[in-house]
Amino acid sequence: MAHGRPTKRRDMFPAAFILPPLVWQASFFITPLVFLVWMSFWRVKNFRLTRDFVTANWERIYNAGFFYDAYVHTFTLATVNALVVSVLAFPAAYFLAFRAGPKVRQLAIVFLVTPFFTSYLVRIYSLQIILAEHGIINSALGLVGLGPITMLSTSFATVVGFLTLTLPLVILVQLLALSQVDKRLMEAASNLGVPPFEAVFKVVIPSAKVGLIMAGTFGFLLSFGDYVSPLFLGGSKPPTLSILIADQVKSGNNWPRASVVAVTMVVTLVAVLLLMTSLAYAKRGKK
């Protein structure tokens, strides 16, 4: 029997579990990201990538007007989506957390988790045929003598696409945050005669602040990097950063310039994440 083996073998035991994920993620997650940064300093010479250390790609991209337009557009759309999705999700999450029965809540969670993991690409295609000039909505409007309304290839359509992506997740995260609110606080507010609607703003939202801010941040992160909605619903007018990356790689064949855009996106996302985290955990001012 193997019990009481000398300690040398036992020392290997943690390594058997720690090393596989560590080595795998370091090799295939961190290394590619490092490559991405390095690649942004390479050169494309006669259509061939050349290892180098030049800042030309950075200068080229950062001096390009289309890059600034894309950056501002992407950031604005993602911010708008984060706000809209937070506001739209909140009543649903509130209802599920405090008012709905456990059966309804359970069923709703299944209906929220499922779309989050299924076929975003084909759902956006479906929205395309719903919103198109001669699509479902406009042909329905036509039947009653209205329309057509132009919806496709607008920022409105892009945000609708973002919402189908982010709404389920944001409702789930908000629900998680709200279910940790101390119900006695709400009872206390009610006993003190605070109307329910007011209690939402004075008790519920302040005590669930961290989770609510993180939910909105997810809404930002997911839409900031999305490629499909801005392209197929927004009509790439103007292109977003993800579209720039795909274009540089797929048609421009300029990986270094695409890397510059990608590194800029990563830095932006880390900055937003840090800012929102510090905002979420910030102590409220002296009152």
Binding site: P32, L36, D226, A246
Partner: peptide
């Protein structure tokens, strides 16, 4: 961490690597 990184970035990072 990986799912918090946009797939477009994982895509190009993987391609270069």
């Amino acid at each position: 961490m990986p799912p918090t990184v946009p797939v477009v970035i994982l895509g190009i990072a993987n391609l270069t690597f």
